[in-house]
């Protein structure tokens, strides 16, 4: 099915086709795009503009009415430990993107091999992804609990630690615990996407490289990675955006603690809007958040576009 159709030829083909500006083709294009655009406008763009407007007003969740305050909200947010918040958000986001990717990749490489039980494992490893996320958070809270958690129980019994460790009560261990829990929940989908990517690597190329005497590691970088980089880039990008956004695990597992060391933009926005009822400052946080994310993503896209020849 033309898996390896070279981009060049298809691009010319498409151009020719797209230039046929017959009326029915234009309306067909409109029809194709309309439903998606409509949904995005209603569910994302309108609420987004509405919230961004709030960033410049004093507005409460509790009562109607708003008064213009200019850049005051943004200044407040920047003055209030913004650096720490950004740092913590990046730690969480990078950790929960990197580890699922590494695990997903390792697993995809293994499960791309032929062996007895391969099909079973491909399915079984999906389970952590299919248990509802909020249950996953409670499960890990249960495991990490300082006073009756099974992790402490096991580590004490096999003699690695003498005293139970309060995992969720130390800055580093709480951050680590969050990354572990989120990684557990999301590595399977990384695995699936990367496994799919691996299927597109033509076996003959491996064969040829092997005959040329390339070892597995060199084969991975010279043969596999070029075919995989497209999908790997996409999953990393999406996972990064989602994790920047991620709320459930942090909310349940640490509640932003200890001492606010695991607060991220997502929990801060939630607290400001739903506990402080302050839509103005929440909007300002959202505005800064989006600005930052945009910069990161543009840099990433530029970088990855330069990397690929397409």
């Amino acid at each position: 099915m033309a898996l390896d159709a070279t981009p060049r030829t298809t691009v010319t083909g498409r151009r020719e086709y797209g230039k046929g500006k017959r009326f029915d083709e234009r309306s067909f294009l409109f029809f194709l795009l309309a439903p998606g655009i409509l949904l995005l406008l209603a569910v994302v763009v309108y609420p987004l503009i509405r919230s961004l407007v709030s960033a410049f007003f004093e507005e409460s969740l509790l009562y109607p009415g708003m008064s213009f305050v200019g850049f005051q909200n943004i200044a407040d947010v920047l003055a209030n430990d913004f650096g720490a918040l950004l740092n913590q958000t990046l730690i969480f986001t990078i950790g929960t993107t990197f580890f699922p990717f590494v695990i997903g990749m390792g697993l995809a490489l293994v499960l791309n091999e032929r062996f007895r039980g391969q099909r079973f494992f491909r399915g079984a490893f999906l389970i952590p992804w299919l248990i509802p996320g909020v249950v996953v958070s409670f499960l890990w809270m249960w495991i990490f609990d300082a006073n009756y958690g099974v992790l402490n129980g096991v580590l004490t019994q096999i003699g690695i630690i003498d005293e139970p460790i309060a995992w969720l009560f130390g800055v580093d261990s709480a951050r680590g615990a969050l990354i572990v829990a989120k990684t557990w929940n999301s590595f399977p989908w990384m695995m699936v996407m990367l496994l799919a990517g691996l299927q597109t690597v033509p076996g003959e190329l491996h064969e040829a490289a092997a005959i040329d005497g390339a070892g597995p590691i060199r084969r991975f970088f010279t043969v596999t990675w070029p075919h995989l980089s497209g999908i790997a880039g996409l999953v990393i990008l999406l996972e990064f955006i989602w994790n920047f956004q991620h709320f459930d695990t942090i909310f349940v597992l640490t509640g932003g603690g200890p001492a606010g060391s695991t607060r991220t933009f997502a929990t801060e926005v939630y607290d400001t809007a739903f506990k402080g009822y302050d839509l103005g400052h929440a909007g300002a946080l959202g505005l800064l958040w989006m600005g930052l994310l945009m910069i990161l993503v543009v840099v990433y896209v530029r970088f990855s576009e330069r990397g690929s020849k397409d």
Binding site: L62, F169, G170, V171, G256, G257, P258, A259, G260, D271, T272, K275, G276, Y277, D278
Partner: peptide
């Protein structure tokens, strides 16, 4: 009105002391 967020702010600082 913002009592819930006050509690969060205080809790956070007390935790900072504890750890």
């Amino acid at each position: 009105v913002s009592y819930a967020q006050m509690e969060t702010a205080i809790a956070e600082q007390v935790q900072a002391v504890l750890i």
